[in-house]
Design a protein around this nucleic acid. Sequence first.
RNA 1: GGAGGGGUCGCAUAGUGGCCGAGUGCGGGCGCCUGCUAAGCGCUUACUGGUUGUUAAGAUCAGUCGAGGGUUCGAAUCCCUCCCCCUCCGCCA
Length: 423
Amino acid sequence: MLSVQYIRENVDRVKRDVLLRNTTAPIDRILLLDEDRRELLQQVEQLRAKRNTVSKAIGASKDAAEREVRITEMRLVGDEIDRLDARLKKIETELHDKLSEVPNILDPNVPKGPDETSNVVVETVGEIPHFAFTPRPHWDIGEIVGGLDIARGAKMSGSRFYTLRGPLAKLQRSLIQFMLNEHAAAGFSECYLPYMLNEVSLYASAQLPKFRDNLYRDAEEDFYFIPTAEVAFVNLYRDEIIPPGKLPMRFVAHTPCFRREKMSAGRDVRGIKRGHQFEKVEMFVYCEPEQGEAEFQGLLARARLIPELLGLPYRVLQLCSGDIGFSATKTCDIEIWAPGQGEWLEVSSVSNCLDFQARRASIRYRPSADASTRHPYLLNASGLALPRTMIGVIENYQREDGSIDIPEVLQPYMGMSRIAAAG
RNA sequence: GGAGGGGUCGCAUAGUGGCCGAGUGCGGGCGCCUGCUAAGCGCUUACUGGUUGUUAAGAUCAGUCGAGGGUUCGAAUCCCUCCCCCUCCGCCA
């Protein structure tokens, strides 16, 4: 979230960015509440100060009558404090709620536009392959090579579930290993993370309250299934002060992700493009504000490296103001080409969230031993989402008979160079 | 699931209603002393919010002893609820 001080001092910018995001936020209400809060706070604190000094005097006093008078007097003061405090608490609760509805400010270079149609293609890399035959979508190829079993996934769990078996299951595992190894070799520290987090954690990472509809949760206990590893990474250092000399910290993890996809009902229902459960390799960076832009570029370069090494045609998009996520100040997407479906598939989002998440999660760091604390910048990037990378490999490397060539970098992991059509 | 023990400043500990404006040790910072990788001495040491101040240094007030409520003129201390950690037993991969 933004600090109320920041909003107070930059009203015009905050309001403009909210408009550019094509959304709304109760800025005027926040300013009003802030003013009320400070006024009330002063009153309460003055009364408390009075009570503190008088109470101390009561303790020191030997005159019983004198004490009685003052105790009675302070009883009234106490009642007044309770009254004001109740009002103050109500205001603070609403202020906090309203503040958590305000999205991050936008990077000034973000292209303006109301929705995804205004996203800007920054760069397209690799040749879009031409096939001597009509390329098949991955679900057809999955059927030919065997191992992509959508019907049995649906039987077990309903729509948007599937099973992978045999070489296709191994292909996913190989891709995960390959990605983790690539990022770890570049100095990203590999993590194993909880897949279920408590409610406080989801508030801290701004999934709640706004995106409750997209989350699965345990009915009996305080557990939410992570929609992305980002949630866990943000909470890794929640309520902590990171000591000097630790930043930047760069992490990578493979986790499953769980999403209800209520907003996408009826979209992308074929194949494995959009499931309720999918695997993702995620990178995450904690850094000093001054390092933010360099880390962003670093993450983008790392994310691009994967389709590059896999030999998949891809493009880099800069998201426009209307399409950027709530917490991010700017975001670049990476999309790979899926010739069977004939569309670009988002496989990564690279975002700089500035100190927005850190403030909300109360994460601070100490630049040096005698310096006061600051909020670090938090950045995240998929590296990459597995099902769509699978689609990319399957559809780009398909042959006319439905078999799939294995990209060279994956062959050591797969122990084969081709997934043959089933007999 | 059962029984017991515990959560105090970066760490370790003291603290059973006012002398706690949270002590002490270690660690950290600054300085001093000392010809020598040592030791010693002095000062200092968190966070949040408000007011004031030039967007400064600072000053000042309030709050924070796991969290939230309660009792009281006054709570680290008493009461209630919850959370987390540890030990043993049971169950289990």
